[in-house]
Amino acid sequence: MSSTLTTRDLIARLSEFDPDTPVHLAINPFFPFRHGIADVIAAKDALGRTTVYVTENGEQQGPVPPGVTVAAGWHEPTEAPRRPRTGISA
């Protein structure tokens, strides 16, 4: 697949889901947070080609779930380190 997602690619991927499913932007692989989507806007780039922009609404809505960061290739699967229980009597 191309490194640039086309409108056709995005529509195909989104058509796999229930149309009422919420959609968020997952941003920043090093500190992944989800953001709300504000709009979809078309504009001409420097070469005169139409490009579509998905804009965010300025709301950082919490961390991206670990499964998403792994599926996106941003992080390796990890587990929290095990801690020994101390101060607990049997």
Rank of each mutant, 00 (worst) to 15 (best):
Leu10Thr: 06
Glu16Trp: 02
Glu59His: 11
Ile88Arg: 10
Ala46Leu: 01
Thr4Arg: 14
Arg8Cys: 00
Pro81Asp: 11
Thr6Trp: 08
Thr69Phe: 10
Pro84Ile: 05
Phe31Pro: 00
Leu10Met: 04
Val23Cys: 06
Val23Pro: 02
Arg49Leu: 10
Ala80Trp: 12
Met1Asp: 04
Leu14Ser: 01
Met1Ile: 10
Val70Asp: 10
Val64Leu: 00
Leu47Trp: 10
Leu5Gln: 15
Glu59Leu: 13
Ile37Phe: 11
Gly58Val: 06
Gln60Thr: 13
Gln61Cys: 12
Phe30Met: 09
Pro32Thr: 01
Ala72Val: 07
Pro77Cys: 08
Ser2Glu: 15
Gln60Tyr: 03
Val54Asp: 04
Val23Tyr: 03
Ala26Tyr: 03
Ala71Ile: 06
Met1Glu: 04
Thr55Pro: 04
Gly87Glu: 11
Leu10Tyr: 04
Ile88Lys: 10
Glu56Phe: 09
Thr6Ile: 11
Ser89Gly: 05
His24Asn: 08
Asp20Phe: 13
Phe33Glu: 05
Phe30Asp: 12
Val68Arg: 00
Trp74Lys: 15
Val70Trp: 12
Leu14Lys: 09
Ala90His: 08
Ala26Thr: 05
Asn57Cys: 06
Tyr53Cys: 07
Leu25Trp: 12
Phe33Trp: 00
Phe17Asp: 05
Val52Arg: 14
Ala43Asp: 03
Pro32Leu: 03
Val70Phe: 14
Pro32Ser: 07
Ile37Ala: 07
Glu76Tyr: 09
Thr4Ala: 12
Pro84Val: 08
Glu56Pro: 00
Asp18Phe: 07
Gly62Glu: 06
Asp20Gly: 06
Pro77Gln: 14
Ser3Phe: 14
Pro66Lys: 09
Met1Lys: 03
Ala43Phe: 12
Leu47His: 14
Val40Lys: 03
Ser2Met: 14
Ile27Ala: 14
His75Tyr: 08
Glu59Val: 09
Gly62Met: 05
Thr6Asn: 10
Thr50Cys: 03
Thr55Val: 08
Val54Leu: 15
Val68Asp: 11
Glu56Arg: 06
Pro19Met: 00
Arg13Val: 00
Val64Ala: 05
Arg85Gln: 15
Gly67Val: 07
Phe33Tyr: 02
Asn57Val: 02
Ala43Lys: 08
Pro63Arg: 15
Gly73Arg: 05
Met1Leu: 03
Ile88Glu: 13
Arg8Thr: 12
Arg34Gly: 01
Pro22His: 02
Phe30Tyr: 02
Gly62His: 06
Pro84Glu: 14
Arg83Cys: 11
Thr6Gln: 08
Asp45His: 02
Ala26Leu: 01
Thr4Pro: 03
Pro63Lys: 12
Ile37Gly: 01
Gln60Glu: 12
Val40Gly: 06
Ser15Glu: 15
Arg34Trp: 00
Thr21Val: 09
Asp20Tyr: 07
Tyr53Asn: 01
Glu16Asn: 08
Arg49Ile: 00
His24Thr: 15
Ile27Asn: 09
Ala42Ser: 04
Arg49Asn: 13
Asn57Ser: 10
Phe31Met: 02
Phe33Met: 05
Ala90Asp: 12
Val40Met: 09
Leu10Trp: 01
Pro65Tyr: 06
Thr86Tyr: 13
Pro84Gln: 12
Gln61Ala: 13
Asp39Gln: 07
His24Arg: 11
Gly58Met: 02
Ser89Gln: 09
Pro63Thr: 06
Thr21Cys: 02
Gly58Tyr: 03
Glu16Phe: 07
Ala90Gln: 03
